[in-house]
């Protein structure tokens, strides 16, 4: 990780806060929130080329809040987050995408979706052959293509 990829402590706090708003923990589905430390570590470690836009979004989040996010009550924090989302733009979209892409590759989350936490290669997947008699009515059609 280069210095350009890093976040200040305040930005990390803000990242944790907004990630928890986007995806809170759920006892119903037995999954952590996106503010959980391992997911946060993944986000920070993989900012890479997106670090600048993410910092921009986090700073905007802090500006809208007007005070340290940790001091906000949950209702006010959620309202500020939704205000940020409504503003839109490349920075907010990038921040949201980074949170989602790291959350939905976390082993616990992937398992909760009924999927295996692994890359596609080398095991691959099984694809049903399907019922080829579905093609019978299509086979019976006259040719559609236009001679030239």
């Amino acid at each position: 990780m280069s210095l350009d990829d890093t976040l200040t402590p305040a930005q990390r706090d803000n990242l944790r806060a907004i990630a928890g708003v986007i995806i809170p923990a759920s006892a119903q589905f037995d999954v952590p929130g996106a503010d959980e430390p391992a997911i946060q570590a993944d986000i920070v470690a993989t900012l890479g080329r997106d670090a600048g836009l993410v910092r921009q979004a986090l700073d905007e989040f802090a500006r809208l809040a007007g005070s340290p996010l940790a001091s906000l009550n949950p209702e006010r924090r959620d309202a500020v987050a939704l205000e940020l989302r409504a503003k839109g733009g490349a920075a907010v979209a990038t921040l949201t995408r980074i949170v989602l892409q790291c959350y939905y590759r976390d082993d616990r989350v992937v398992r909760s979706l009924g999927l295996e936490p692994r890359p596609p290669y080398p095991k691959g997947h099984v694809l049903e052959e399907g019922d080829w008699t579905l093609l019978d009515p299509v086979r019976a059609r006259p040719k559609l293509w236009r001679p030239a």
């Binding site: 997106d50 892409q101 936490p117 692994r118 596609p120």
Partner: peptide, 15 residues
């Protein structure tokens, strides 16, 4: 080194 060999297989489409 193609994306499908790693856990970040989907994320690399953004990078």
């Amino acid at each position: 080194t193609y994306p499908s060999t790693g856990r970040d297989w989907e994320a690399r489409a953004f990078g």
